[in-house]
């Protein structure tokens, strides 16, 4: 089968790739572009391990075709840190031990950033429901929620 040519932007970098029409964005990221920070936990949009942003919208990369990236701005975990400076969410996740095995962590970070981009002052309930699409089997979510709430407060303080 002939491949589709896709032109897109990933983490700010203009990117081109060829993909099969059936190929998911997750497979494109992982297998064609070597961006393996985005994880596959289920392939059916139930676990959130493959969370990315498409034009600012939070999306499961396993539910999107690679071809749909045409002309979009894609954000992945690899684009969260700025140079050698970790994003405050990344820093706080480490400091508060908001990860154990770490497989769900990229998805949680991408999802949490998407939340804070929209809502600077989320309640605990809002954070819990926003992140309900991301499964974590290790932490019981406690430290994840605390880290996100903490960073939200920190970012509000910084912009004040």
């Amino acid at each position: 089968m002939s491949k589709l040519h896709v032109t897109t932007t990933i983490n700010g970098e203009p990117t081109e790739f060829l993909c099969d029409a059936r190929e998911t964005m997750l497979d494109v990221l992982r297998d064609r572009l070597g961006l393996t920070g985005t994880k596959e936990g289920c392939g059916s949009g139930d676990c959130g391990a493959c969370s990315i942003t498409v034009d600012g919208r939070l999306v499961c990369a396993c539910l999107m075709f690679g071809a749909e990236a045409e002309g979009s701005q894609i954000g992945t975990i690899e684009g969260l840190a700025e140079g050698e400076k970790l994003h405050p969410l990344q820093k706080r996740f480490i400091e508060l031990a908001a990860l154990q095995c770490g497989i769900c962590t990229p998805g949680f970070l991408v999802a949490a950033k998407a939340l804070l981009d929209r809502n600077k002052n989320p309640t605990e309930t809002e954070v819990r429901y926003w992140l309900a699409g991301n499964l974590c089997r290790c932490t019981g979510y406690d430290k994840i929620i605390r880290a996100v709430m903490d960073v939200a407060a920190e970012l509000r303080g910084a912009t004040r």
Partner: peptide
């Protein structure tokens, strides 16, 4: 004490390599 884990930066940046990576 509660220092940062040695594999923390790898695991929050997507750099850590798991089974399928």
């Amino acid at each position: 004490t509660r220092p940062n884990r040695p594999d923390g930066a790898d695991k929050v940046t997507g750099r850590a390599r798991f089974g399928a990576d």
